[in-house]
Computed example of a mutant assay.
Amino acid sequence: MAGKTYRVIQWATGTVGKVAIRHFAENPTYELVGTLVTNPKKVGKDAGEIAKIGPIGVIATDDVEAIVALEADAVHFAPSVHDLDMVCRLLRSGKNVVCPVGPFFPWERWKPDFDKLAAACADGGTSFHGSGIHPGFAGDLLPLTVARIMNRIDHIHLYETIDHLANPSNYIEFMGFGRESADLLANPGRSPEAPYMFAQSMEIVAKGLGLTIDDVTAKFDVATAVRDIDYGRGVVKQGTVAGQHYEWTGWADGKPLITYHCFWTMGDENIEPRWNAGVSGYRIRIEGDPPMEVTMARPAAAEGVQYLGLPWTAMAGVNVIPAVCDAAPGIVTHFELGVPTLRGLFRPD
């Protein structure tokens, strides 16, 4: 299968979609045959121009029927708002689907969604994989990989740190930066379902250790701005929320097995209390024998350390498309993927 070319469709062209398009254009393993956009201003544009690499001969469309009718091996399905019914339709049309927004693992709370996906895979003779980055790679596959060289595990901690001042995004307003502390603590920007979405990754880790997640507990703390913070589109006023720390813990056998710490700030130097959460990226810390720590972050550059979560999210899915296409029909989790062969990555400049 080493020389096989996979015909792919990119569904949605936000940051994740653009990264995927650039890779499809550069990697001879793939042939991009279609691009679905939701922004009317992008309709009729060349996908390469949308991804800022120049024309590649694939014209973006918002015609869902035309995309569904295309012959393709796989769809990299990366919209900002998930659509499980559309994923199922694509699967039934004979296309394998890799989806950065999951679902990721058939933990009990998500069983109805996986039942729908499994039925669609059976009807289409296709496979589905939820990739992501967190949930996804950083929160499950990476801890399990590190655990392989441990003698004993007491407690696994995963830290996601994002400086939204250095890495502006639409999440600044959506997550409630700039709101009063009491208001945000009472009405968090993240959905009450968020801990259970992340619990899918926790259950992957638990299964890999021969356990199961019995309960998930949550904590939420905020920090306030010590000065007005101008982030381009607006200002986070002094005294309002400029830092958020979500902490979710998965319990197994009555003890904490894995804790996810999500630190989102408008610059650590701009908040009180200062959390000193480290550079933007992911850090795994395992309490046990021997103690273990692994950091996943971009090396410092002239413009400072930036968060690469969205490019990583794209590549976590794109790189396993061949393995998902070649897998037996059905749900493909990390356990079914095993150690996939990564095709076309070695392309020295």
Rank of each mutant, 00 (worst) to 15 (best):
G178C: 12
I21N: 00
G338H: 03
E303W: 14
K116L: 12
E71D: 11
T295V: 12
L142D: 04
K42W: 01
L211P: 11
D163P: 00
V305H: 10
P256A: 04
I67E: 00
D46G: 02
I162F: 07
V68Y: 07
K207G: 06
I271C: 09
K207V: 15
V294P: 02
F114K: 04
E65D: 15
V146T: 10
S93V: 05
G309E: 06
G344H: 01
S127N: 09
T212V: 08
V58C: 03
H134K: 08
I162H: 06
S131F: 03
M1R: 11
S280C: 10
E108W: 12
P188M: 05
N187C: 13
K219W: 12
G57H: 08
G338E: 08
L142H: 11
A314P: 05
C88T: 11
S127C: 13
M197W: 13
E108R: 11
G234K: 10
A60F: 01
V236P: 02
V318I: 11
D221M: 08
E193D: 15
F24C: 10
L84H: 04
R347L: 13
I59A: 10
R347V: 11
K18N: 10
R22K: 08
V75N: 04
E49L: 06
A182P: 14
C121R: 04
R89P: 07
T126G: 04
H157A: 04
E336T: 06
P256W: 03
P40H: 05
W251V: 08
H23C: 12
N270H: 10
I156K: 00
D289A: 07
R109Y: 14
N167P: 01
D85Y: 07
Y30G: 02
D183S: 12
A74K: 06
V241N: 09
E26F: 14
G178A: 13
N319L: 11
T145D: 08
F128P: 02
V64E: 14
A252S: 10
D83R: 11
P135F: 03
V8N: 04
G288Y: 02
V222F: 04
W251I: 07
A119P: 13
L257E: 00
V279F: 14
F137G: 00
P329N: 09
G34K: 03
I162Q: 04
V58Y: 01
F220P: 02
H155S: 00
V87S: 11
F24D: 00
I50L: 12
P256C: 02
K116M: 09
A323C: 03
E31V: 11
P106C: 05
E160Y: 03
T313D: 00
K52E: 15
D46L: 07
E193H: 13
A206C: 09
T38L: 13
N151P: 06
W11S: 06
T13M: 09
F77R: 01
P79G: 08
R283I: 01
G288T: 00
N276T: 13
R190E: 11
E49T: 05
P195W: 12
Y30S: 05
F198D: 06
G132Y: 01
R22P: 09
H23V: 13
G330M: 07
